[in-house]
Amino acid sequence: GSPGIQSFLPPGWEMRIAPNGRPFFIDHNTKTTTWEDPRLK
């Protein structure tokens, strides 16, 4: 199987799917959430 997208996120980050189907990202380091992919910064 191919590695999940989770493995490509920075340490402490998690990806979830919102009720509307959009992915969002949780930064457990700062306890914040964002719509922006942290890998694109």
Rank of each mutant, 00 (worst) to 15 (best):
P19S: 10
R39Y: 04
W35H: 04
F8I: 14
S7T: 13
K31S: 10
I17A: 04
P11V: 10
T32P: 00
I17Y: 12
W13Q: 00
S2D: 14
R16V: 09
G4H: 13
F8R: 12
N20I: 02
S7E: 14
K31Y: 08
P23Y: 12
F24P: 00
N29V: 10
D37F: 07
T34I: 05
S7M: 12
Q6N: 14
R22P: 02
W13V: 02
D37Y: 07
G1W: 13
R22F: 08
G4E: 14
K31W: 09
D37R: 06
H28S: 06
R39E: 01
G12I: 01
G4I: 12
T32A: 07
T33N: 06
R22M: 10
P19H: 09
L9G: 01
S2H: 12
G21A: 02
L40S: 11
P10K: 07
R39Q: 04
T34L: 03
G21W: 01
S7G: 15
N20L: 03
R22W: 09
G12W: 05
T34P: 00
F25I: 00
G21P: 11
G4R: 10
D27T: 00
P11W: 10
P3I: 13
T33Y: 15
M15L: 07
R39D: 02
L40I: 11
I26L: 07
I26E: 02
S7C: 15
S2V: 12
L40A: 11
S2Q: 14
G1M: 11
F25K: 00
I5A: 14
P19Q: 09
F24R: 03
R22A: 07
Q6E: 14
M15D: 00
P19A: 12
W35L: 06
T30A: 07
P3L: 14
P23A: 11
P11N: 11
R16L: 08
R39H: 04
T32Y: 08
P38I: 04
I5Q: 14
H28W: 14
T30D: 04
T34C: 07
G21F: 03
P38S: 01
R39S: 07
R39C: 09
R22N: 06
I26A: 01
T34D: 01
R39T: 08
T30W: 03
R16I: 09
G21E: 02
N29E: 07
H28I: 08
N29G: 06
R16A: 07
D27R: 02
R16T: 05
I17D: 01
M15P: 00
Q6F: 03
F24H: 03
H28F: 08
W35P: 02
G1D: 12
H28T: 09
P19D: 07
D37S: 04
G1Y: 11
R16G: 06
F25W: 11
R39K: 02
S7F: 11
D37I: 04
T30R: 07
P11R: 11
T32M: 10
P3A: 13
I26F: 10
K41N: 15
W13M: 01
T30N: 10
W13K: 00
I26Q: 02
E36W: 14
G12L: 03
A18G: 10
N29Q: 07
T30K: 07
G12S: 03
E14H: 04
P3F: 11
A18C: 15
M15T: 03
W13N: 00
P38M: 03
I17F: 12
P38R: 01
R22I: 10
L40Y: 11
H28R: 06
F8M: 09
P23S: 08
T30P: 00
F24N: 01
K31Q: 13
G21C: 14
T33M: 15
G4A: 13
F24E: 05
P3V: 12
F8G: 15
R16W: 06
G12R: 05
W13F: 04
T34K: 02
R16S: 06
S2A: 14
P10G: 04
P3T: 14
W13P: 00
N20V: 01
I26G: 00
M15R: 06
E14Q: 06
N29H: 07
R16D: 03
Q6M: 07
F24A: 02
N20G: 09
G12Y: 04
G12H: 06
E36Y: 14
P3K: 12
F25M: 00
W35K: 02
D37T: 04
I5R: 12
E36Q: 14
L9R: 01
E14A: 06
L40H: 09
G4D: 14
D37M: 07
H28M: 08
E14M: 05
E36R: 14
F24Y: 15
D27A: 01
W13G: 00
E14V: 08
P3H: 12
S7P: 14
P38H: 01
I17S: 05
H28A: 06
P23E: 08
F25E: 00
P10Y: 06
P11H: 11
N20S: 10
P23V: 14
T32H: 08
I5S: 13
I17G: 01
T30L: 06
S2W: 08
N20E: 03
T30Y: 05
R22E: 08
K31V: 05
G4S: 10
I5W: 12
T32F: 10
Q6G: 14
T33G: 07
T32N: 07
R39W: 07
I26H: 04
K31L: 09
A18V: 03
T33Q: 10
W35R: 02
F24K: 03
H28V: 07
S7K: 12
N29D: 06
F24G: 00
A18H: 09
N20K: 03
K31T: 07
T34G: 03
M15N: 00
W35V: 03
K31R: 11
S2M: 13
A18E: 05
S2P: 14
N20T: 07
L40W: 11
I17K: 07
R22Y: 08
